[in-house]
Protein backbone atom coordinates (compact mmCIF):
# COMPACT_ATOMS: atom_id res chain seq x y z
CA UNK A 1 0.00 0.00 0.00
CA UNK A 2 1.60 3.26 -1.02
CA UNK A 3 1.38 6.32 1.18
CA UNK A 4 2.41 8.65 -1.55
CA UNK A 5 1.88 8.25 -5.25
CA UNK A 6 3.03 10.86 -7.74
CA UNK A 7 1.70 10.26 -11.24
CA UNK A 8 2.95 12.01 -14.38
CA UNK A 9 3.62 15.28 -12.60
CA UNK A 10 4.71 18.11 -14.92
CA UNK A 11 5.49 21.64 -13.82
CA UNK A 12 6.71 24.78 -15.57
CA UNK A 13 8.33 28.11 -14.82
CA UNK A 14 6.99 30.28 -17.64
CA UNK A 15 7.43 28.14 -20.76
CA UNK A 16 10.31 26.12 -19.31
CA UNK A 17 9.53 22.63 -17.98
CA UNK A 18 11.10 21.95 -14.54
CA UNK A 19 9.36 18.64 -13.80
CA UNK A 20 8.80 16.31 -16.74
CA UNK A 21 6.21 13.59 -16.25
CA UNK A 22 7.54 12.53 -12.85
CA UNK A 23 6.07 9.37 -11.32
CA UNK A 24 7.11 7.70 -8.09
CA UNK A 25 5.66 5.96 -5.06
CA UNK A 26 6.64 5.75 -1.42
CA UNK A 27 5.17 2.77 0.39
CA UNK A 28 4.46 2.30 4.09
CA UNK A 29 7.62 2.43 6.18
CA UNK A 30 9.81 2.91 3.13
CA UNK A 31 12.68 5.37 2.72
CA UNK A 32 13.01 6.56 -0.87
CA UNK A 33 15.99 8.63 -1.95
CA UNK A 34 15.49 11.42 -4.45
CA UNK A 35 18.86 11.97 -6.07
CA UNK A 36 20.27 14.40 -8.60
CA UNK A 37 22.61 17.33 -9.12
CA UNK A 38 21.55 20.91 -8.47
CA UNK A 39 18.71 21.91 -10.77
CA UNK A 40 17.52 18.33 -11.17
CA UNK A 41 14.18 19.18 -9.57
CA UNK A 42 14.53 16.98 -6.50
CA UNK A 43 13.56 19.69 -4.00
CA UNK A 44 10.71 20.80 -6.29
CA UNK A 45 9.08 17.39 -5.98
CA UNK A 46 9.16 17.68 -2.19
CA UNK A 47 7.71 21.18 -2.40
CA UNK A 48 4.97 20.03 -4.78
CA UNK A 49 3.89 17.39 -2.29
CA UNK A 50 3.88 19.83 0.63
CA UNK A 51 2.15 22.53 -1.41
CA UNK A 52 5.01 24.98 -0.91
CA UNK A 53 6.05 25.51 -4.54
CA UNK A 54 7.26 29.04 -5.33
CA UNK A 55 4.50 31.16 -6.92
CA UNK A 56 6.26 31.20 -10.30
CA UNK A 57 5.93 27.42 -10.63
CA UNK A 58 2.83 26.18 -12.42
CA UNK A 59 1.77 22.55 -12.10
CA UNK A 60 0.44 21.66 -15.55
CA UNK A 61 -0.65 18.07 -15.13
CA UNK A 62 -0.38 14.98 -12.99
CA UNK A 63 -1.64 13.71 -9.67
CA UNK A 64 -0.22 13.67 -6.16
CA UNK A 65 -2.09 11.15 -4.03
CA UNK A 66 -1.42 11.08 -0.29
CA UNK A 67 -3.14 8.13 1.39
CA UNK A 68 -5.93 8.06 -1.18
CA UNK A 69 -6.51 11.82 -1.20
CA UNK A 70 -5.83 13.49 -4.53
CA UNK A 71 -4.07 16.64 -3.32
CA UNK A 72 -4.12 18.65 -6.53
CA UNK A 73 -7.85 18.13 -7.00
CA UNK A 74 -8.69 19.51 -3.54
CA UNK A 75 -9.54 23.04 -2.52
CA UNK A 76 -6.41 24.76 -1.14
CA UNK A 77 -7.94 24.93 2.33
CA UNK A 78 -8.72 21.22 2.50
CA UNK A 79 -5.37 20.42 0.96
CA UNK A 80 -3.53 22.35 3.68
CA UNK A 81 -5.48 20.49 6.35
CA UNK A 82 -4.63 17.08 4.87
CA UNK A 83 -0.96 17.94 4.38
CA UNK A 84 -0.66 19.56 7.80
CA UNK A 85 -2.05 16.47 9.53
CA UNK A 86 -0.31 13.77 7.52
CA UNK A 87 2.97 15.13 6.18
CA UNK A 88 5.93 17.02 7.60
CA UNK A 89 9.27 18.42 6.49
CA UNK A 90 12.79 18.08 7.87
CA UNK A 91 14.49 21.08 6.24
CA UNK A 92 18.09 21.47 5.11
CA UNK A 93 19.32 24.34 7.21
CA UNK A 94 18.31 24.08 10.86
CA UNK A 95 19.32 27.68 11.53
CA UNK A 96 17.06 29.37 9.00
CA UNK A 97 14.20 26.97 9.69
CA UNK A 98 13.93 28.09 13.31
CA UNK A 99 12.81 31.59 14.22
CA UNK A 100 15.88 33.17 15.87
CA UNK A 101 13.85 35.55 18.05
CA UNK A 102 11.63 32.92 19.65
CA UNK A 103 12.31 30.16 22.14
CA UNK A 104 12.46 26.60 20.83
CA UNK A 105 9.50 25.22 22.83
CA UNK A 106 6.68 27.20 21.24
CA UNK A 107 8.14 26.56 17.81
CA UNK A 108 7.47 22.85 18.35
CA UNK A 109 4.15 23.14 20.16
CA UNK A 110 2.46 25.92 18.13
CA UNK A 111 1.92 23.69 15.14
CA UNK A 112 0.18 21.10 17.33
CA UNK A 113 -2.01 23.72 18.97
CA UNK A 114 -2.82 25.98 16.02
CA UNK A 115 -3.15 23.48 13.19
CA UNK A 116 -4.11 20.26 14.92
CA UNK A 117 -6.14 21.73 17.77
CA UNK A 118 -4.30 20.11 20.67
CA UNK A 119 -4.46 21.70 24.12
CA UNK A 120 -1.37 23.65 25.09
CA UNK A 121 -0.71 21.20 27.93
CA UNK A 122 -0.87 18.11 25.69
CA UNK A 123 1.41 19.78 23.16
CA UNK A 124 3.90 20.63 25.88
CA UNK A 125 3.95 17.05 27.20
CA UNK A 126 4.34 15.66 23.70
CA UNK A 127 7.20 18.06 22.88
CA UNK A 128 9.13 17.03 26.00
CA UNK A 129 8.56 13.37 25.15
CA UNK A 130 9.89 13.92 21.65
CA UNK A 131 12.97 15.86 22.70
CA UNK A 132 13.76 12.93 24.95
CA UNK A 133 13.19 10.55 22.03
CA UNK A 134 15.70 12.44 19.86
CA UNK A 135 18.24 12.15 22.71
CA UNK A 136 18.31 15.77 23.79
CA UNK A 137 19.56 16.06 27.36
CA UNK A 138 17.61 18.35 29.73
CA UNK A 139 14.59 18.83 27.43
CA UNK A 140 12.99 21.39 29.78
CA UNK A 141 16.02 23.64 29.50
CA UNK A 142 16.22 23.26 25.71
CA UNK A 143 12.53 24.17 25.35
CA UNK A 144 13.36 27.55 26.91
CA UNK A 145 16.52 28.11 24.84
CA UNK A 146 16.83 30.30 21.75
CA UNK A 147 18.11 28.63 18.55
CA UNK A 148 21.48 30.44 18.62
CA UNK A 149 22.25 28.91 22.01
CA UNK A 150 22.26 25.42 20.49
CA UNK A 151 24.69 23.63 18.17
CA UNK A 152 23.83 22.74 14.57
CA UNK A 153 23.34 19.07 15.42
CA UNK A 154 21.09 19.98 18.35
CA UNK A 155 18.97 22.28 16.16
CA UNK A 156 18.55 19.51 13.58
CA UNK A 157 17.44 17.14 16.36
CA UNK A 158 14.80 19.68 17.36
CA UNK A 159 13.51 19.91 13.80
CA UNK A 160 13.37 16.13 13.60
CA UNK A 161 11.39 16.02 16.84
CA UNK A 162 9.13 18.71 15.46
CA UNK A 163 8.57 16.80 12.21
CA UNK A 164 7.53 13.64 14.06
CA UNK A 165 5.41 15.53 16.62
CA UNK A 166 1.99 15.05 15.03
CA UNK A 167 2.72 11.45 13.96
CA UNK A 168 2.74 12.23 10.23
CA UNK A 169 2.48 9.30 7.82
CA UNK A 170 4.98 10.88 5.40
CA UNK A 171 8.08 12.95 6.06
CA UNK A 172 10.02 14.79 3.41
CA UNK A 173 13.64 15.29 4.40
CA UNK A 174 15.27 17.90 2.16
CA UNK A 175 19.07 17.48 2.40
CA UNK A 176 18.78 17.29 6.21
CA UNK A 177 22.48 16.65 6.83
CA UNK A 178 24.19 18.73 4.14
CA UNK A 179 24.98 21.60 6.51
CA UNK A 180 26.42 19.32 9.21
CA UNK A 181 29.86 17.88 9.97
CA UNK A 182 30.38 14.25 8.96
CA UNK A 183 30.46 13.06 12.56
CA UNK A 184 27.22 14.90 13.36
CA UNK A 185 25.73 13.76 10.05
CA UNK A 186 26.20 10.15 11.09
CA UNK A 187 24.39 10.74 14.39
CA UNK A 188 21.52 12.52 12.65
CA UNK A 189 21.14 9.82 9.98
CA UNK A 190 21.09 7.20 12.72
CA UNK A 191 18.43 9.21 14.54
CA UNK A 192 16.25 9.68 11.45
CA UNK A 193 16.40 5.96 10.73
CA UNK A 194 15.62 5.07 14.34
CA UNK A 195 12.64 7.45 14.49
CA UNK A 196 11.38 6.35 11.08
CA UNK A 197 11.49 2.68 12.08
CA UNK A 198 9.82 3.30 15.45
CA UNK A 199 6.99 5.39 14.01
CA UNK A 200 6.63 3.46 10.73
CA UNK A 201 6.73 6.69 8.78
CA UNK A 202 7.29 6.77 5.03
CA UNK A 203 10.24 8.99 4.14
CA UNK A 204 11.15 10.83 0.97
CA UNK A 205 14.82 11.68 1.37
CA UNK A 206 16.13 14.40 -0.95
CA UNK A 207 19.93 14.36 -1.26
CA UNK A 208 22.81 14.75 -3.70
CA UNK A 209 24.99 12.33 -1.74
CA UNK A 210 24.89 8.73 -2.97
CA UNK A 211 26.86 7.72 0.12
CA UNK A 212 23.97 8.86 2.30
CA UNK A 213 21.46 7.12 0.02
CA UNK A 214 23.29 3.81 0.36
CA UNK A 215 23.06 4.04 4.14
CA UNK A 216 19.47 5.06 4.72
CA UNK A 217 17.25 4.34 1.68
CA UNK A 218 15.60 1.19 0.38
CA UNK A 219 14.72 2.61 -3.02
CA UNK A 220 15.78 5.62 -5.05
CA UNK A 221 14.81 7.83 -7.94
CA UNK A 222 17.54 9.47 -10.03
CA UNK A 223 16.59 12.77 -11.64
CA UNK A 224 18.13 15.02 -14.25
CA UNK A 225 16.47 18.15 -15.62
CA UNK A 226 13.25 17.30 -13.80
CA UNK A 227 12.99 13.92 -15.49
CA UNK A 228 13.19 10.50 -13.83
CA UNK A 229 16.12 8.57 -15.29
CA UNK A 230 16.09 5.59 -12.99
CA UNK A 231 13.75 4.21 -10.35
CA UNK A 232 15.19 1.23 -8.57
CA UNK A 233 15.95 -0.64 -5.34
CA UNK A 234 19.09 0.53 -3.54
CA UNK A 235 20.58 -2.98 -3.65
CA UNK A 236 20.21 -3.16 -7.41
CA UNK A 237 21.52 0.38 -7.88
CA UNK A 238 24.78 -0.15 -6.04
CA UNK A 239 25.22 -3.55 -7.68
CA UNK A 240 25.11 -1.76 -11.05
CA UNK A 241 23.02 1.24 -12.10
CA UNK A 242 21.14 0.70 -15.36
CA UNK A 243 21.13 4.27 -16.68
CA UNK A 244 24.51 5.56 -17.96
CA UNK A 245 24.00 8.85 -16.12
CA UNK A 246 23.42 7.06 -12.78
CA UNK A 247 26.55 5.01 -13.35
CA UNK A 248 28.54 8.18 -14.11
CA UNK A 249 27.17 9.92 -11.01
CA UNK A 250 28.25 6.96 -8.88
CA UNK A 251 31.71 7.04 -10.48
CA UNK A 252 32.04 10.76 -9.67
CA UNK A 253 31.27 10.20 -5.97
CA UNK A 254 34.49 10.28 -3.93
CA UNK A 255 35.36 7.13 -2.03
CA UNK A 256 38.37 7.24 0.29
CA UNK A 257 38.81 3.49 0.26
CA UNK A 258 39.43 3.57 -3.48
CA UNK A 259 41.07 6.91 -4.33
CA UNK A 260 42.09 5.97 -7.87
CA UNK A 261 38.72 4.69 -8.98
CA UNK A 262 36.75 7.70 -7.81
CA UNK A 263 36.30 11.26 -9.02
CA UNK A 264 35.68 10.73 -12.69
CA UNK A 265 33.54 13.68 -13.84
CA UNK A 266 30.29 12.75 -15.59
CA UNK A 267 31.48 12.42 -19.23
CA UNK A 268 30.21 14.97 -21.78
CA UNK A 269 28.87 12.12 -23.92
CA UNK A 270 26.66 10.93 -21.05
CA UNK A 271 25.31 14.45 -20.45
CA UNK A 272 24.68 14.84 -24.19
CA UNK A 273 22.80 11.54 -24.14
CA UNK A 274 20.59 12.66 -21.25
CA UNK A 275 19.92 16.03 -22.91
CA UNK A 276 18.93 14.26 -26.13
CA UNK A 277 16.57 12.07 -24.13
CA UNK A 278 15.00 15.16 -22.56
CA UNK A 279 14.73 17.00 -25.90
CA UNK A 280 13.04 13.99 -27.46
CA UNK A 281 10.62 13.94 -24.53
CA UNK A 282 9.89 17.68 -24.89
CA UNK A 283 9.29 17.34 -28.64
CA UNK A 284 6.92 14.46 -28.04
CA UNK A 285 4.96 16.55 -25.52
CA UNK A 286 5.08 19.73 -27.57
CA UNK A 287 7.16 21.71 -25.04
CA UNK A 288 9.62 23.03 -27.62
Amino acid sequence: MSFLTIENLSAFVGPAPILRDVSLTVTAGEVRGLVGESGAGKSMIGKAVLGTLPPAVRVASGRIVLEGEDLLAMRPRDRRRVIGARAALIPQDPLTALNPSRRVGPQITNRLVDILGWTRHDAQVRALELLDEVHIPEPERVMRAYPHELSGGMRQRILIASAFAAEPRLIIADEPTTALDVTVQKQILRLIREMQARHGTALLFVTHDLGVVSKICQSLTVLYGGKVLEDTRVGDFFAGPTHPYSAALLAATPKYTDPDASLTPVPEAVIDGVRAEIEAFDRMHGHV
Binding site: T183, K186, D209, G211, S214, K215, T253
Partner: peptide, 17 residues
Amino acid sequence: RELLDAIPLPDLDQVWV
Protein backbone atom coordinates in the same frame (compact mmCIF):
# COMPACT_ATOMS: atom_id res chain seq x y z
CA ARG B 1 39.40 7.34 13.29
CA GLU B 2 36.10 8.95 14.26
CA LEU B 3 36.21 11.18 11.17
CA LEU B 4 36.99 8.24 8.87
CA ASP B 5 34.29 6.12 10.42
CA ALA B 6 31.70 8.85 9.88
CA ILE B 7 32.04 9.02 6.09
CA PRO B 8 29.08 7.38 4.34
CA LEU B 9 30.71 5.37 1.57
CA PRO B 10 28.55 4.72 -1.49
CA ASP B 11 28.25 0.98 -0.95
CA LEU B 12 25.80 -1.42 0.60
CA ASP B 13 26.74 -1.44 4.24
CA GLN B 14 23.59 -0.48 6.08
CA VAL B 15 25.03 -1.60 9.40
CA TRP B 16 26.92 1.70 9.28
CA VAL B 17 24.14 3.86 10.72
